[in-house]
Write a protein that binds this DNA or RNA. Structure first.
Lengths: 345, 345
DNA sequence: TTGAAAGCGCTAACAG
DNA sequence: CTGTTAGCGCTTTCAA
C-alpha cells in the first residue's frame, strides 16, 4: 500500500506549514497567489488526493445524500433515481443508494447506517409497511433534512413530493366513462396502503361525478403480479351476467397481463369488448398491441423535484425552519388503443 | 443542532474511560460482560450513534464500495445494480452509485471523488469512450480492488465480468439460419466499441460456419435509438431487389421499433417476410406481438458475480495478488414468435 | 499572509 | 479486564 500522501507531506517538501497547504488547496483568500500556485503544482505532481474522511469529520459535512427506495430496478424508481442523481451531481453531492426491498426492518437498518455516515440529507420512498416516521426522527432532530417521495405515510408532517394519485385514476376512469363504458371494474392493490387507497378513491369519485353507482364488488384487491391479475380476471369472467366493459388497473404490469390474456385466451377482445387501462406508462405499454392507455407519473421529475427540495433545505439549514412542504406532481393521461371506444376503433 | 453524543459523553456518564466504551460497543472480548451491558444500555438510552466518519478515518476502511455506470435507469444497469446492492448489503457494505452519462470527463471526476472518499472497492462499467484505464490506476496503486463489468476496454488486464457477446449474436444468427433464413442483415451499433464489434463478429462467425457469404453491405451501423432504426429500415427496404429475410439487431429497442414499423406501416410482416431478433430481453420484448426473439444477458447475475468477485479481492487484500481474473457470463437465447419460420408459423 | 496548536470522534498500541 | 496515550488527516481559531 503506497502510503497516501497528506498535506503534511506536501508541507514538508515545500517547507511551509500544513495549514497553509490546506488553505491553498481550498482556495482560501488568506494565502498568497504564488504560494497557492506552488502548492497546487506540487500537489498535482505528487498525486495528492484530499482525504475527505478527515475533512468531513472536521467540518461535520459529507456532501453526500442518502436515497432509500423499495426496489432500485423498478422502472419508476430507477427513473426517479436518475433525476435525483442528476441534481445531486450538479450540486456537487454524492448519492448513496440503498434498497429496502420493502422490508421495514431493513429500512430501519439502512437509515441507522446512513445516519452514522452523517449524510447531509435524506430522500426516501418508504416501505409499504412504514406506518409512521419514528425512525426518521434521528434525522430531523439533528437538522438533517428529509424529503419523502412517491410514497408516504399518513399523518406525517414531513416534506414530500408525490403524485396526485387520486386525480390520476379519476382521469382514467372519467376517460373510460366518456368512451361510453358503464360497467367499470377496478383492479386494486393493497387497500391498506395510502397510495392504493387514493387511487381507489379517484376511481370512485369519477363514478360518482358521472352519476354511476359504485359497486363494491367491482373492486378486486390483489397482490400486484401478472399471474394474480390473470387469476382475478378469470374469476371476474366466470359471472357471465356481469362482464365488465372496462377495467381500471392500478399498475401497468397487471394491465398488460390482462390484455395479453384476454386477446390470446378468451372470447373477449380489447378494447372492443373490454377496455383496459393501466398506471405508470412503462415502456412496454407503448409496445403492446393495442397500446395501453395509462397515466404517466413523471418519475424522473418526481426525483428531480424532491432532490431540488432537499437541497433547498440543506442550504437553508441555518436560516430557516424545516417546515413541512408538499409538492404534488400532476399525472398525464396517455390515451392509446386499449380504451378506444367501439365507434372510433 | 442537538450535539451528537460521543463515546466520551457515555464514558463520562458511566465513570469509565472512552476506550472501554469503544471496546464495549464493538463487542471486543477484552471487556467485562457487565460493563458491556451497562455501556450498551446507556448508549441506547442516550440514543448514541457511532460516528463512522471518525471510525473510518481511524481504521482507513469505509465499508463502502463505489459503483459507476453510464446510465442508472437503463434496464440492464438497474438490474445489475440490484444484484450488486444485494451482495454488498449482505456483506455489510454500503454502495455509492454514480452515473457517468457516458461522458469520460464525468467518469474521471466521479472516480476522483470516490477515491477521496476512500471507498474500499470499485465496480465500474466504463464509458463508450474509455479507451484505457489510466484513471483507474489510483485505485490499483493503493490496493483498492477494481472490477469492470459488462463493458471494458481492450488490452486491459483488470479483472472483469462480461457477457459472451460474440457467442450471443452467434446463437441468434445461427438460430435464424436454422430457421431457413438466407439473407440476414445486421443492425449494429458503433463498431469502434469493443462490445458492438464483438457482437458483429458473432454474427459473421455464424454466417461463416454455416457457409453463408458475409456481405459487408448487410451491416448497418447506427446510433441505437428507435427512430434511427426505423430510418435505417426504410433505407434497407428501398432496394427492392435486396430485401432481407432476417435482421439481427444489436439491442431490443431497435428491434422492437422495427417490428412495429414493419407490421404497421409496410407490406412486410414479421416474421413471415422478415424475421427480427433483438438483444437484451427487455420486459417489452415479451409483451409485443409477435414476441421478440432475443438473448438474455442476465444483468442481475452479472452484477451479483462482479460484486462477489470484488468482495473476494477486498477480503484477500493482505494475502494475495490482485491478479487479473475474468468471468464470462453465458447468454441465453430466448426464442419467440418474431423469428418463427414460415413452416412453424 | 503565514504558523502554531487544538481538536473533530474514534481505535489501537501499550501498560498495568 | 481497564486506562493512558497517541494519532488518523484535515480545518480553523488565534497569534504573529
Amino acid at each position: 500500500m503506497t502510503k497516501n500522501i497528506t498535506i503534511h507531506d506536501l508541507a514538508k517538501v515545500l517547507g511551509i506549514d500544513s495549514s497553509t497547504v490546506s488553505r491553498a488547496l481550498s482556495d482560501s483568500p488568506r494565502v498568497g497567489a504564488k504560494t497557492k500556485e506552488k502548492v497546487k503544482a506540487k500537489a498535482k505532481e505528487m498525486g495528492y488526493q484530499r482525504n475527505l474522511l478527515a475533512s468531513n469529520l472536521r467540518t461535520n459535512k459529507t456532501m453526500t445524500i442518502g436515497v432509500v427506495v423499495p426496489f432500485i430496478s423498478r422502472h419508476f424508481f430507477s427513473e426517479a433515481i436518475d433525476g435525483i442523481e442528476q441534481v445531486a451531481s450538479e450540486e456537487g453531492y454524492r448519492v448513496i443508494i440503498s434498497q429496502s426491498r420493502d422490508s421495514f426492518a431493513k429500512e430501519k437498518e439502512i437509515l441507522d447506517g446512513l445516519f452514522m455516515n452523517r449524510i447531509d440529507g435524506l430522500l426516501i420512498s418508504p416501505t409499504q409497511d412504514t406506518r409512521d416516521g419514528e425512525h426518521l426522527n434521528q434525522f430531523s432532530q439533528n437538522k438533517i433534512p428529509v424529503v419523502l417521495f412517491d410514497r408516504f405515510y399518513e399523518n406525517s408532517n414531513m416534506s414530500k413530493v408525490v403524485l396526485a394519485d387520486r386525480k390520476a385514476t379519476y382521469m382514467i376512469t372519467d376517460h373510460l366513462i366518456k368512451q361510453g363504458k358503464k360497467k367499470i371494474f377496478h383492479l386494486a392493490g393493497d387497500l391498506e396502503s395510502t397510495m392504493y387507497k387514493e387511487r381507489c378513491t379517484g376511481y370512485k369519485n369519477a363514478l360518482f361525478d358521472n352519476g354511476i353507482k359504485y359497486e363494491k364488488s367491482y373492486v378486486k384487491s390483489i397482490e400486484l403480479y401478472a399471474d394474480n391479475a390473470v387469476v382475478a380476471m378469470k374469476e371476474i369472467l366466470e359471472d357471465k351476467n356481469n362482464i365488465p366493459d372496462a377495467i381500471v388497473c392500478v399498475n401497468d404490469v397487471t394491465a398488460l397481463a390482462i390484455i395479453k390474456y384476454l386477446n390470446e385466451s378468451t372470447e373477449y377482445n380489447v378494447p372492443e369488448d373490454i377496455a383496459i387501462a393501466g398506471f405508470s406508462n412503462e415502456p412496454a405499454s407503448a409496445i403492446i398491441t393495442p397500446g395501453l392507455t395509462t397515466v404517466d407519473q413523471h418519475p424522473f421529475e418526481i426525483g428531480k423535484t424532491s432532490s431540488e427540495m432537499l437541497f433547498e433545505f440543506i442550504k437553508d439549514k441555518y436560516s430557516g425552519d424545516l417546515s413541512s412542504k408538499t409538492v404534488v406532481i400532476q399525472p398525464e393521461l396517455i390515451i392509446r388503443g386499449s380504451t378506444a371506444s367501439k365507434v372510433i376503433a
